[in-house]
Design a protein around this nucleic acid. Structure first.
Lengths: 237, 237
DNA sequence: CGGTACCTTGAGTCAAATCAACACCAGTGG
DNA sequence: CCACTGGTGTTGATTTGACTCAAGGTACCG
């Protein structure tokens, strides 16, 4: 077996449980290996795809972190989400065969390219993959419901608390600390995502520090009182 | 052919172009007819499904209108969307085999029940259906991006303008007027959807009336100056 | 080591929320 | 028939949380 074939095989990827379906037998696993056409490195601030670009593939994040954002006609950007290793981006492109948002790397990153054609072909043979794709899309829909709830009915402190808890929970699922995290995005990007101005994000961090829930040094955040933070995030007055 | 078989056949449903894939041949059309297990009437204020309920089927709206909403732990509801004839609801249930929002009829309605098992089975045979399902889910993701943009960065007037334009455009695609509409939901439900309080919705309507963009009598709205409304909806300061 | 991007904090402003009063309508039942 | 009720919608007065504007501070990179 050649080395670079090995390199792009899902069957021996440590992120498999995160981005690919479980419960496959050996033969199915080998079929799945045909999914990834290639890997692609994306440097910090690099664009993986942009609004208007023809849709060809989904991307599984292998390392690093991305933000996805839509732009108003006035050039203002609304961050839609922050995606990390094991997550799939590009689902927005399927409807119109054309991406409707930008995907930008927040740090040097690497993605697996999953050409949509191959996905469709292999899914025909491997029903588990088909169902898995449905689940991934449904998960994204449900995630966005959560963001809409946040944007539609939470106050600044609640939004920031919910954001931090969400980030640390996802990082924890990837083997990182459940109480410390390093933010890969600016205050402005957090603000855009949360529907707040960067000053408000900064002030809210300070307020949470003052009330002893978190510690902040630059982009390093330590969660001191998870329960209080959860209480806050779900208070939703 | 029995009458009640005819009754639930997609192949002779006038909403087919809205909710089912186009470009199918006769045989495929007949296969698709097996999708709909049943129709179900839902009276005004009735629940089609609720958060936590086991997921079994998607629903295609045949007549009427629904709202979908998620609830906070404190019992406050955030309206996620308003769905009308030809649209598919229930996609949120696929990830966890469990619905994560409520679907409530805003008027007496009727839906076609599409059991997920049947969808999967028939999609194996009819690739066009598979792709169509992907498109529907992707469309929902993109729609939610738009709502996030609205909630994250528009002011009250812009939100209301965007809401009215979106409603009238969708109604127009269903053969209704492109300048008049009857709202099936309360000001409070509109407010919840737009991240505003009901008083703000009411005041904003009044403001738009005053500036000559729309006319309002109860839930009947007439759009007088579409261009001004569009201008407003996309100004996004 | 200088420049730039990023972050924090303060003071004042403003848009939307809150609180409150009242109008309207449909349905109910005396 | 009318009085009553509860849900809905409008409008006004006031408050407030987040925004805006402004000034520095800090960290990072070539």
């Amino acid at each position: 077996m050649k080395l670079d074939t090995l390199k792009v095989a899902c069957s021996n990827c440590n992120l498999r449980e995160l981005c690919m379906p479980g419960g496959l037998n050996l033969q199915e696993l080998q079929q799945i290996d045909g999914l990834v056409a290639n890997r692609q490195k994306v440097p910090k601030s690099g664009l993986l795809f942009r609004n208007g670009e023809t849709f060809q593939a989904l991307y599984a994040i292998r390392t690093g972190m991305f933000k996805t954002a839509v732009n108003t006609e006035q050039g203002k950007e609304q961050v839609i989400g922050f995606q990390m290793a094991g997550e799939i981006i590009g689902l927005d492109g399927i409807v119109e065969d054309c991406h409707s948002c930008d995907a930008i790397a927040l740090e040097d990153s690497e993605v697996c390219i999953l050409p949509m054609e191959r996905i469709d072909d292999i899914a025909k043979e491997v029903p588990g993959l088909q169902r898995h794709l449905h689940k991934i899309m449904s998960r994204e829909i449900v995630r966005e419901h959560g963001v809409m709830l946040l944007l539609g009915s939470m106050r600044a402190e609640e939004r920031v608390a919910a954001f931090l808890l969400n980030m640390v929970q996802r990082l924890n699922a990837r083997g990182f600390s459940s109480s410390e995290l390093v933010l890969r995005m600016t205050r402005e990007e957090i603000g855009s995502y949360l529907g707040l101005k960067l000053e408000t994000v900064s002030r809210t961090f300070s307020k949470l520090v003052e009330s002893g829930m978190i510690e902040v040094r630059n982009r390093h955040v330590r969660i001191v009182d998870v329960d209080a933070l959860k209480e806050l995030a779900s208070s939703c007055n």
